[in-house]
Design a binder for these strands. Structure first.
Length: 426
RNA sequence: GGAGAAGUGGCUGAGUGGUCGAAAGCGCUCCCCUGCUAAGGGAGUAUGGGUCAAAAGCCCAUCGAGGGUUCGAAUCCCUCCUUCUCCGCCA
């Protein structure tokens, strides 16, 4: 959520910034709601003040043993007026709030202009694109040839966009997850978290999945408003919702492995083959909660932590700064890590690292106490995949394939595979 | 799932209709005092919002959440959530 005060005092800055996203700010609607809010709120508060002071007067009169009947008569109509004013205020505030919750974040100044992903800017590459002296297969063929993937089984037990991994492939994914968690906890200073895979509406509102992106979620039946998490970002970041964090506890660095559940509404026909786009996938997620003045630096560090995973896995990748039109709803700035997939002959997103500034924390009321001022201040939140395990699995398969169809296991994973150096058919 | 108890400020905890944003203690901050330490004395110490260019000031809200009763609710009523105890079931 944007700062309502900024909207009131400098609406043009907001309009200009959001225009970079191709988002047109409903100026007239906002100005009208805001003006109504102001007059109605002032009136409601005045009425309440009037009621409070009269009630106090009645109390005093009663204590003094006076007749309070005339006083009661005076306040008779006040209650109705106040009730009406309150109803009006609630209504306008709900509308205003709705509008506010639907506004995307302001972009960081350093985000490049551009309409869509074609304008994203690759800022660095790592690793050599592997040269094969045979034509590389995609991960589906590779895994099928090894007898380790059963898409039909998944389709039977659930449906499209689910997968069944077997034997060495299932173990390899588990190895990837273990490896990533160990690296982030032991070398990058994150605290490992195990958290619920089901969250409530407040949490989804806090991180920005709701109200706008309800269609992307798997909602659970029942009246609690529960949904399966689309990413561990939701439970991890909401850990600080409604908290004032003590300065000695700052910054917070969380890492968790969770499955992620996405309905993939609107992506029919996209990446239908294989494990690239699934309704359920495994991911290791990094979340940082930092002071406002530390978030840019934290963003670079967090991205480097995700990069370190790919480097240690010997997977070639590039880092891309998302342009203004491609940056997600709540993010102020995003770096995508794109890993090389030989079969597709292209780079594909394997991690997305974003700085949300105070967008999520304002929704969540997540603050920390700044020792310099003694006052609570909104934190900045960041998150990034560190990295998506399903896609990492794809990348390891495709980049590690050999002429005989076996898969070379990166050295960093071998300890997690009982010393196995390659996957091969028996 | 059944029965019961409880949710108050950073913490402990008092408060059953008005003078309660809330006693007291602890903690914390500042000041004073004692040659150091320990102890002691004094003052301060919630969050959000509105008004304002801003600050001060003033005002409004908040005692788990949401409704209700009342001129007036931390206090009475209803619903929900959470925690604890006992019983049942269970990985």
């Amino acid at each position: 959520m944007l700062d309502p005060k900024l909207l009131r005092t400098d609406i043009d800055t907001v309009i200009t910034s959001l225009a970079r996203r191709n988002f047109s700010f409903p100026r007239d609607e906002y100005l009208q709601l805001e003006e109504t809010r102001k007059t109605v709120q002032i009136r409601a508060e005045e009425l309440r003040q009037e009621r409070n002071s009269r009630s106090k007067g009645i109390g005093n009169a009663k204590a003094a043993g006076e007749d309070i009947q005339p006083l009661l008569a005076q306040v008779e109509s006040l209650g109705d007026e106040l009730e009406a004013a309150n109803a009006e205020l609630n209504e306008v505030q709900a509308k205003l709030n709705n509008l506010l919750l639907g506004l995307p974040n302001l972009l960081d100044k350093s985000v490049p202009d551009g309409a869509d992903e074609s304008a994203n800017v690759a800022i660095r590459h790592w690793g050599d694109i592997p040269a094969f002296d045979f034509s590389p297969l995609d991960h589906v063929d590779l895994a099928n040839n090894l007898g380790l993937l059963d898409m039909n089984g998944a389709a039977k037990i659930t449906g499209a966009r689910f997968s069944v991994l077997k034997g060495g492939l299932a173990r390899l994914q588990r190895a990837l997850i273990q490896f990533m968690l160990d690296m982030h906890t032991q070398e990058h200073g994150y605290q490992e978290i195990y958290a619920p895979y089901i969250v409530n509406e407040e949490s989804l509102l806090g991180t920005g999945q709701l109200p706008k992106f309800a269609d992307d979620l798997f909602a659970l039946k029942g009246e609690q408003g529960f949904a399966l998490i689309p990413t561990a970002e939701v439970p991890l970041t909401n850990l600080v919702r409604d908290e004032i964090i003590a300065s000695e506890d700052m910054p917070l660095h969380f890492v968790a492995h969770t499955p992620c559940f996405r309905s993939e509404a609107g992506s029919h026909g996209k990446d239908t083959r294989g494990l690239i786009r699934q309704h359920q996938f495994e991911k290791v997620e990094l979340v940082q909660i930092v002071a406002a003045n530390a978030s840019s630096e934290a963003h670079e560090a967090l991205t480097a932590h995700a990069e370190n995973i790919l480097q240690t896995l010997e997977l070639p990748y590039r880092v891309v700064t998302l342009c203004s039109g491609d940056t997600g709803f709540g993010a102020a700035k995003t770096y995508d890590l794109e890993v090389w997939l030989p079969a597709q002959n292209t780079f594909r997103e394997i991690s997305s690292c974003s700085n949300f500034h105070d967008f999520q924390s304002r929704r969540m009321k997540a603050r920390w106490r700044n020792p310099d001022t003694g006052k609570p201040e909104l934190v900045h939140t960041l998150n990034g995949s560190g990295v998506a395990a399903g896609r990492a699995l794809v990348a390891v398969l495709e980049n590690g394939q050999q002429a005989d169809g076996s898969i070379r296991i990166p050295a960093a994973l071998q300890p997690y595979m009982g010393g196995l150096t390659q996957l091969q058919s028996k």
